[in-house]
Design a protein around this nucleic acid. Structure first.
Lengths: 212, 212, 212, 212
DNA sequence: GATGAATGAGTCTTCATTCAT
DNA sequence: AATGAATGAAGACTCATTCAT
């Protein structure tokens, strides 16, 4: 019964997905041809189509796989008990994202931007992205609650709303890494503190300009 | 052959670019064909190629044009004197971005993500994006300096570094708008306020202050 | 305004259709590739697809065109006033079909069988074929009526029913031509008379065998 | 490796052929893939290729098998002693063909029309079809001779030539059934009777008789 | 300047056939 | 004998670009 074993089957799928990401990170999703993927995977056209029905399905699977790998990098940080203090959290997340982005010696930072781009015009990917973001937002909301409880941040804001600002700090790191590149997790955490550390003086007016 | 007047020439270019964006926002850049653009612009193939040598050049021009429109929405907010207070600034930027994204009844949130995507694999666009981000970071750095001076934020952080966190709040707003959509400038500004680190009161947490 | 003239447009369509039939008659419809048709028509892929959206559409158009040419060969015979006498009619139809089948030095006899084959699995072609057959059956019914009126055939049968037998003589000629080939219009008409000429003796029983 | 028994071998071949016809009648010969046949036969690729070297060989075998089944339906009618009277013969043949065509709930006509189509471009099938038709023509010629002897039809025609007209009635029934469908053996036989030429009574038509 | 018909390399996908197990 | 995963040539179709008019 030469029906291939489930592990082997999965290995093939992974092989194809890995090849796909190598191609995608080289030339982008839409500019990668199936021919590229076939060559890169060292398989044949037929074999690739045996595992994925179409290029679109393959793209979806590749994005899904990447988002799962991302989770493995990032969820432990998001669910740590006790929660990291704010600045440390930012730094750890930035580190986690950087580690994810550089795995396999590829430029995976690109993968976020590519996935968002695909999401715009592929409902399935949009749904996947939305679901992912919603989930991360929930985890962030939980963290905000904890910080409010411990008094690490002001307890004034609604957690769900504050979480969006926090989420932005993560998304913004991704974008800046992808486009500018020159950003280190440590410096980024410092930047966070610089912006959100409570000022020492009362800041009622804007008339303090003359001081310079 | 009477050479066409310069205004007319520019009008044609604008007409093509506007048509391009209408197409891009419908089906994405790579899935839009020159045929789509020609039809949408009510011109002919010949005409479009008279003004833009290739699809790639057209894409670049379209992204450049969009980034210039973006500037007109956003630079006034960034250069206002006196600078907006932090939360107001966030709100105004969010409003400005939303206004930009919805102009011409299009879905322009897409345009950011698409431009970033193109930037990954088109050096010219990458350069353009980098330059743009760098410029915005400079303006944000100036704002951070002012806030530090007025005491609206802590004066501890290096302005250039702090600006990156601030920039993230803007970029993150864009991404969340593009993917999730449900985010209002006002709520977002509130979220920003909720993230401020509590002033150092007696707490069971780490002694983060004295070390500096 | 280089928009191509309507005649030229039609000429191109005809050029493609003619090339298609040359290919079809060589290797059959399904075994003919678009590549074959493109080469045979001395056009390019793009040009062919400019005039016909898909291979299926082209096949339909080709069959429709062939059936229209067939009509031009056959309808005059079917509508002649006064109607041909039966045997002459059969001979003339056989001649007409033969002329149609051999036009352009091709083997067009095949086209009937190919069209019937396609009709089985392409609803549009099935509809076309059905409509065509129904129309011919109506013309044949009219002829049967005339023959009954003039007393050339027995007036016992219902015209619509008798027409089906008459139609079979035409269809059968087509099939035998296509498969066996050795059949001349004149001989075929004789065969018709041999079968349908009223016998001279009363044919009540089957006991007449001993006569030999 | 115990060589499989001859009966089992034949059973396998039949199983494959039956599956093939089920597929052919669903989507046509050329549009049926080996995959379809393998799945339908509940065997494997290897097994099918063990019994038939190629798709072409399988098609030929399938058509040959069908023509043998056809014979079993139709030869008894053609060789009956004493021969059926003409109209009865037509009716019985129509019935026999209908029974053949509907066996195993397959589509009428499909197999005839498909076989004729294949015959055009596959010499082996063409030879097979020709031989089959020739053989049927011979049987029909024998019948014509008997009818002439019994006076059931005019004895004027050459039997071999008259047989072609008779054959047409059978072929025409097949084509009309395949395309139009609405034709019953009984009605068809009536139609046949309706076509008999009236005995020569005083008429205004041409003096067809004396010339011979 | 402007047009849009034409080009053809390149894309995705299928499927008859093979062969290691 | 039997299996079915794998192969890759060949198929239908697209689309950026050109050029005769």
């Amino acid at each position: 019964m030469p029906k291939i074993s489930e592990e082997k089957r999965q290995a093939r799928r992974d092989q194809i997905l890995a090849a796909s990401w190598r191609c995608f990170s080289r030339r982008g999703i839409r500019l990668t041809s199936m021919d590229d993927i076939v060559r890169e995977s060292k398989l044949s056209f037929g074999a690739v189509y045996l595992y994925y029905e179409s290029k679109d399905e393959l793209i979806q699977a590749a994005i899904l796989a990447a988002s799962q790998v991302l989770q493995s990098f990032v969820v432990p940080i998001l669910t740590r008990e006790p929660a990291f203090p704010p600045a440390i959290f930012i730094r750890e997340m930035a580190k986690g994202l950087t580690a994810f982005a550089n795995r396999d010696a590829l430029n995976f930072g690109v993968s976020f931007v590519m996935a968002w781009g695909e999401a715009q015009f592929t409902p399935e990917i949009k749904a996947m992205s939305s679901a992912g973001q919603t989930k991360y937002l929930e985890l962030l909301t939980a963290i905000v609650r904890k910080w409010q409880k411990t008094g690490e941040i002001s307890s004034k804001g609604k957690p769900g709303v504050t979480a969006k600002a926090l989420f932005s700090l993560i998304l913004g790191f991704i974008v800046q890494s992808a486009i500018l590149g020159d950003i280190s997790p440590d410096a980024y955490a410092k930047g966070f503190e610089g912006l959100f550390l409570a000022p020492l003086q009362p800041q009622n007016s804007t008339k303090r300009k003359s001081a310079k």
